[in-house]
Design a protein around this nucleic acid. Structure first.
Ligand SMILES: [Zn+2]
Ligand SMILES: [Zn+2]
Ligand SMILES: [Zn+2]
Ligand SMILES: [Zn+2]
Lengths: 168, 168
DNA sequence: GCCTGGTTGTTATATTGTAACATCCAACTT
DNA sequence: AAGTTGGATGTTACAATATAACAACCAGGC
């Protein structure tokens, strides 16, 4: 990150994406080791494929990638791997897109908060704890026991706002 | 509502559901009239079917109901009606459930905020403006232009918390 | 070696959602 | 009234997403 950490949230920023992927994989390895879980080659590869994409990826896109690896693969293969990664909070599922994205702060328990650009498809994950607390408080008012929360915000990312009005 | 308006958010509360459906339909009629839109018999019927359910309903469930009416119906029929109703904010779509639920405050612009009970499937819609504002503020920090926001909270409703630990 | 539990492979199918085009119908125009 | 038009619906076919069920495999412990 070479900026203020805010405007660079969208991965279009000139950060080193390859390094991000490597860091995510290393982090996943250590988290699984701590938890006594098996980050098998398949799971690791799926995590890598999710992270390599700059946008959320669908299960069938991951499936295609696995096949390009030469690996035998069918839908259950990829769904099981993704389920594992979601369970362990290494990736998030975005229900409104039927797609998955790598969590940029795995290990830290948090609810998913996403800014989804309708134009370029990029997604930024937020970690706004005040928002977390606001959701908890609101649910507590109704005596609802929160187990998981998800915030999906659609709109235009800064870059696409600029492009708007032009030929796009 | 016979209570404090909080614990009764979950429709299991002893309110008159039939009256709610009628009120929703009447409200939809007047909103469409104001906006110069056509609440056709099909659209009206779909809205009624969504409202009649105590839980979010899937498109294919609505389709079955339409067929039970004796009406000729295929998936596009119901998806188009649902798309219209969602567009006009008369119903909300819950992406994590692939299902639809009637909006209990149509006309008032608001982001969707839902408490979804994983045990009984019932859903309560919240209207927490502080939460709205918190989301807007968080997005503004990143210069993201919000067009639509959605909060889906999963957990256990008060009733199902009580039932937990028993045979359920 | 053999059992065991978890992981992956494989086939088939279920569920959810759309594209494309035909038909119908209400409202407006002449 | 007859024609025109745009939106709404009917219809067929299909695409995209997800899961059930069972077989095969494999690492670790006995
Ligand atoms: Zn995360
Ligand atoms: Zn964008
Ligand atoms: Zn609403
Ligand atoms: Zn419940």
């Amino acid at each position: 990150m070479t900026d203020d950490g805010k405007s660079g949230l969208f991965p279009a920023g000139g950060h080193d994406h390859h390094a991000c992927v490597e860091a995510a994989l290393a982090s996943a390895e250590s988290l699984c080791r701590e938890r006594g879980l098996r980050l098998t080659p398949l799971r690791r590869r799926v995590l890598e494929l999710v992270w390599r994409s700059h946008c959320p990826v669908g299960a069938y896109a991951v499936l295609e990638d696995l096949r390009r690896d030469g690996r035998s693969a069918a839908p259950p293969t990829v769904y099981r791997a993704l389920d594992f990664l979601v369970q362990e909070r290494l990736v998030h599922r975005l229900p409104s897109l039927n797609a998955y994205i790598g969590c940029n702060e795995p290990g830290a328990p948090h609810c998913g908060q996403f800014l989804i650009c309708r134009h370029c498809g990029r997604v930024a994950e937020l970690h706004d704890h005040a928002l977390d607390r606001r959701i908890s408080a609101s649910a507590a008012d109704t005596r609802f026991r929160v187990e998981q929360a998800l915030v999906e915000v659609r709109g235009l990312c800064p870059r696409c706002q600029a492009a708007e009005g032009d030929g796009e």
